[in-house]
C-alpha cells in the first residue's frame, strides 16, 4: 500500500516538473498557429482556427530548403569532427603519459573559462588572412575548435572511470593504445559521447553570429539565417517565427530521442571492479 503512495507521489512530482518543461513548447506550437494580431491578445493554448499557412510561409519565405540542408551538413561535419578530435585527446589526457600533460589540458580548457570580448573580430581578421571568409571550411573549423574544450573535459572524466583492469587485460592481449581507445573506451563511454553529441549539436544548430560574420553567400548560410528574417528591427512576425522555430526544433528533438537511448542503456553496467 505504502509503495503505491510513494509511486503516486513520485509520479505527481515528475508530472509537475514535466508540466513546467512542456508548457513553453505547447505555447510555441499554439502560437505558431495564430496570427500576428491574436498571438498576444488571445493567450490560450487551444487555437480555434489554426492557420497552418504559417508553416508554409516560414518554409518558403525563410528559404528553408537550402538552409536546412546546409545546417544538417554543418552539424554533421562539425559534431563529427568534435567527437573524433576531442575523444582522441580526452583519451590521451585520461590514460596516457607525456610531458606537459596538465599544462596542455588546461590550455585546451581555457577557452571555456575566459570570455573573449570581441573574439569574433579577431577570428574574422584571422580567417580573412587565411582566405577562409565566405567558405564552408571557414565556418566549420572554428566551430570544431570551439566545441573541443567542453567535450574534452567531459569525455576525459568518463574515460577515467573505465576500470583500468579492463584495459590492462586488453593490453596483455596485444591491443595498442589506439586499439584500446577505439574498441574499448569509445564503446564504453557511449553515454558521455551521446552527451557530447547532443551538447554540440544544440550549439551548432542554433549558431548564427559566426554565420553572419563570415558567410555572405545565401547558398552557404545555415537555418538560423532563415529564421532571422522574421525578426525585423522593429516588427517581429511572431507566428511565422514560431512556425519556423517549430520546424527547426524537430530535428533536435529527434536526435535527442536517438541519443538518450545510449545514455540509458548502461553499457558500463557491471564493468566496474566489484
Amino acid at each position: 500500500m505504502s509503495k503505491r503512495i510513494i509511486s503516486l507521489l513520485k509520479h505527481s512530482f515528475m508530472i509537475l516538473i514535466s508540466a513546467a518543461c512542456i508548457f513553453p513548447l505547447l505555447w510555441m506550437i499554439s502560437s505558431s498557429l495564430k496570427t500576428q494580431s491574436t498571438i498576444f491578445s488571445d493567450m490560450s493554448l487551444f487555437v480555434l482556427r489554426p492557420s497552418w499557412q504559417n508553416y508554409i510561409t516560414a518554409w518558403v519565405k525563410g528559404n528553408f530548403g537550402i538552409y536546412f540542408l546546409n545546417s544538417v551538413f554543418y552539424t554533421v561535419t562539425i559534431v563529427g569532427g568534435i567527437v573524433l578530435v576531442s575523444s582522441l585527446a580526452a583519451y590521451a589526457f585520461a590514460r596516457l603519459e607525456f610531458p606537459f600533460k596538465n599544462f596542455l589540458f588546461l590550455l585546451l580548457l581555457a577557452p571555456m573559462m575566459i570570455p573573449i570580448p570581441g573574439g569574433f573580430v579577431a577570428l574574422y581578421v584571422l580567417l580573412n588572412k587565411m582566405h577562409l571568409i565566405n567558405t564552408r571550411i571557414g565556418y566549420i573549423l572554428p566551430q570544431i575548435n570551439a566545441g573541443l574544450a567542453m567535450s574534452i573535459f567531459l569525455l576525459k572524466s568518463f574515460f577515467e572511470k573505465i576500470p583500468r583492469d579492463l584495459e590492462d587485460s586488453a593490453r596483455i592481449d596485444g591491443c595498442s593504445r589506439l586499439g584500446i581507445y577505439w574498441h574499448l573506451c569509445l564503446p564504453l563511454a557511449k553515454p558521455a559521447l551521446a552527451i557530447v553529441v547532443i551538447y554540440n549539436t544544440l550549439y551548432v544548430w542554433n549558431e548564427y553570429l559566426l554565420a553572419m560574420l563570415i558567410l555572405s553567400d545565401k547558398s552557404l548560410m545555415p537555418l538560423t539565417r532563415g529564421l532571422m528574417i522574421f525578426r525585423g528591427e522593429h516588427v517581429t512576425q511572431y507566428p511565422i517565427l514560431m512556425a519556423g522555430m517549430c520546424i527547426a526544433t524537430i530535428p533536435i528533438i529527434f536526435l535527442y530521442l536517438l541519443m538518450q537511448k545510449h545514455i540509458i542503456k548502461g553499457v558500463m553496467a557491471g564493468a566496474v571492479k566489484g
Partner: peptide
Amino acid sequence: NYLFILPALLLFAVF
C-alpha cells in the same frame, strides 16, 4: 602519445 592530442592542439593553435 602526442599524436592523440595533435589534432586538438593544431585546431587550438590555429583558431
